[in-house]
Design a protein around this nucleic acid. Structure first.
Ligand SMILES: [Mn+2]
Ligand SMILES: [Mn+2]
Ligand SMILES: [Zn+2]
Ligand SMILES: [Zn+2]
Lengths: 138, 138
DNA sequence: CAAACGCATGCAACTTTGTTGCAAAATGAT
DNA sequence: ATCATTTTGCAACAAAGTTGCATGCGTTTG
């Protein structure tokens, strides 16, 4: 894990610092998405709030994580697949949000289906969010 | 319009007040979705910020409007179709957000396609957001 | 139409969330 | 070990959202 974390940071030309290692560790350990608040809670007093914001921002820019829009408009972040880069993301998968436990899961294998738009609209990116009950809560 | 507004409020057992009429009017006049900030700007000093929050909350609960999750995690609201009620919504249509002008449009005729989930997940509601360029901006 | 009731509003105070500038500290290269 | 460059923490601020309470307005009833 330690090695994996270092590798991800190095690959993205980021210096290896305490907060980056810790936050990346949290993402790798969690199988779901994390909110800014989750991260703050889990890191405790260890890092400043501002550092968490800036670290997430950096990870976003590098394509290490992506955001997930949620129906209640909270901000969630999840690890990107390996082939995401600064410019180009490949996160065209469906996201599932459990309305019971709140867990948000990247369904990496479920590709967002195509949809035909009315004339005039030029689509660029598709997002699909499914809410419901997860395995544990149903 | 005035009559239409009254009818919507009455149908939902809401008293007809200044702020509710004005905010509903804004939604009916706009063909896109509105953010809380948009509404505040357009109503000016006429109503308190808190009143706008509470009015939107009430409309949400009654099923008069629905929220739209956006990739940048801002909160957008749009009118529901007639057959939405307190408990049950029928807003299973695609939403389009223009990345140039920011306008958000309900594609009421475009139904969200079905998608097969891995075993264990019990889906309840589907959301689909497409970003890109609208007719005016392309 | 007047009176009375109950809900909606405005205001103030507060919390939460996110941003910015700057000095000190940590990192990576030499 | 030294130095240049980033990153961090702190403080101050701005924006966004919430809550309690007294007052005002809309609705109902007689
Ligand atoms: Mn994902
Ligand atoms: Mn809609
Ligand atoms: Zn669950
Ligand atoms: Zn546009």
């Amino acid at each position: 894990m330690e090695a994996q974390i270092d590798e991800i940071l190095r690959k993205n030309q980021l210096s290896v610092t305490g907060s980056r290692k810790r936050i990346l560790e949290l993402f790798l350990a969690s199988n779901g998405a994390l909110a800014h608040g989750d991260i703050e809670k889990k890191t405790g007093e260890k890092f400043d709030r501002v550092t968490v914001y800036r670290t997430l921002q950096t990870f976003l820019e590098k394509g290490i994580i992506h955001t997930i829009p949620t129906p209640d408009n909270s901000v969630l972040y999840a690890l990107c697949k390996d082939n995401c880069t600064e410019g180009h993301h490949h996160d065209n998968h469906v996201h599932f949000i459990c309305r019971e436990c709140g867990k948000t899961i990247c369904l990496a294998d479920i590709t967002i289906p195509e949809v035909k738009l009315p004339g005039g609209f030029l689509p660029h990116e598709y997002q699909m969010i499914v809410t419901g009950l997860c395995k544990e809560c149903r």
